[in-house]
């Protein structure tokens, strides 16, 4: 008969490396795929945009300036279509692979990301109206939403 003590009731995890289940493969695959897609598009656009900036003499040294320069319209359509289709596909895979507890984590992270933007944009805009700060930067808002979302998601995912 099994003798149950606190010691063997504790989680005997992590010393054994186990292969990922199909669900976990889809879960991590969708997240890594979305990240790689965004990184690949950024790396594709960065040199093109910097070159375009040099040609038209723009850019005052802002952090996101390299992504503000004009690029070829056909390339712009192709890249935006790739992003929308690619991210949509990754999101569908992700949603179909998360369990009910992870769904709660995702909702928490999404809510915090949303509120981060809802708090920031109006406050920033009003401060700009007082000419206290530069105008609202869309990429800064994107970064604030993304980082706050990811921070909450990682805290809930990786806490013990």
């Amino acid at each position: 008969m099994t003798n149950l003590t606190e010691a063997n009731m504790a989680d005997p995890q992590d010393s054994r490396r186990r292969p990922l289940t199909p669900r976990a493969k889809r879960y991590w695959g969708s997240l890594i795929g979305a990240g790689l897609l965004g990184a690949a598009i950024s790396l594709l656009l960065l040199p093109l945009s910097i070159e375009a900036g040099h040609n038209i003499g723009t850019g005052d040294g802002g952090f996101f300036d390299p992504f503000e320069n004009p690029i070829n319209p056909t390339l712009a359509v192709l890249v935006s279509a790739l992003w929308m289709a690619g991210l949509l596909m990754m999101c569908l895979i992700f949603y179909r692979s998360i369990d009910e507890f992870e769904e709660r984590d995702y909702l928490w992270a999404g809510t915090v990301g949303w509120y981060a933007m809802m708090l920031t944009i109006p406050a920033w805009h009003v401060l700009w109206m007082g000419r206290l700060v530069p105008p609202v930067g869309i990429w800064w808002i994107f970064a604030i939403g993304l980082l706050s979302n990811n921070a909450v998601w990682m805290w809930r995912k990786f806490r013990k």
Partner: peptide, 15 residues
């Protein structure tokens, strides 16, 4: 382990 039970139930270790 919690992870093994999670595999049997097709949910995460955190769940």
């Amino acid at each position: 382990s919690q992870a093994e039970l999670g595999d049997h139930l097709d949910v995460s270790r955190q769940a």
